[in-house]
Design a protein around this nucleic acid. Structure first.
Length: 213
DNA sequence: CCCCGGATAATCT
DNA sequence: GATTATCCGGGGT
């Protein structure tokens, strides 16, 4: 399509086969790309949340709840799980093996490419606010319910290798106050000190590249 | 702090 | 069929 495509290779299916909490950290620093006929938009993933399936009260698949909406969570890992919340589309990466309905919510990006297109789609200029939230990043990239179930290993929606964070912070997940004890689990991950995260929060744990990641 | 949009699904009557 | 809640964001008080 354009020069940005060349040299950017989608990560293989095997990347998505690691355990969900590992995948949620491994996705940090990766590049998320969406191609549409309006153009290409891409950003570094800088914030994620793990949703651990039937035992996780905050997950849509809690108690193996299987509906048309959650169906893709029960499929193989590496597919897109998009859903609508109020007026916004949220984007998750399906993880876990078949019949293990786990997922990683992508909560924030650092814009890399197609910033003009993001500005047009969002109707704002401030680059630090284009993709610093799960609903904002889908609007900036043009991710919609048409992407539901798409494999993330091929265009038009894919994940490619980016940078390896020096440090990853972990804290409580956002927006799940009514999920009992699950609200306190440290399953939100972000690139330490990155200014494009959706909100600032004190870390419960910090992982360093040289030792833990 | 509050309000509200408006898709999906569970829980009621 | 009606009501309620939700992995959110923008705008007002």
């Amino acid at each position: 399509m354009e020069e940005f495509d060349k040299g950017i290779v989608p990560l293989p299916e095997a990347f998505y086969e690691q355990p969900t909490l590992e995948l949620a950290k491994a996705l940090l620093g990766c590049i998320l790309v969406k191609e549409t006929n309006e153009g290409i938009a891409a950003g570094f993933i800088v914030e994620t949340e793990a949703y651990m399936g039937p035992s996780d009260r905050a997950a849509h698949s809690y108690n193996n709840r299987r509906t048309p909406r959650t169906e893709v969570m029960f499929q193989r890992s590496g597919l897109a799980y998009t859903y609508l919340m109020h007026t916004h589309c949220l984007f998750n990466v399906v993880s876990g093996s078949e019949e293990k309905p786990e997922a990683v919510l992508i909560r924030a990006l650092e814009p890399i490419y197609g910033i003009g297109l993001m500005i047009k789609r969002r109707g704002i200029e401030d680059q630090s606010k284009l993709t610093n939230g799960p609903g904002k990043l889908t609007k900036s990239l043009g991710i919609s319910m048409e992407d539901y179930g798409r494999p993330l290993t091929i265009p038009p929606l894919y994940v490619a290798q980016g940078f390896c964070p020096e440090s990853i912070s972990a804290g409580k997940r956002i927006g799940i106050e009514n999920s009992g004890d699950a609200k306190d689990y440290p399953w939100r991950f972000w690139v330490t000190n990155n200014k494009f995260v959706s909100r600032h929060q004190s870390a419960i744990h910090v992982f360093y590249n040289s030792t833990d990641i």
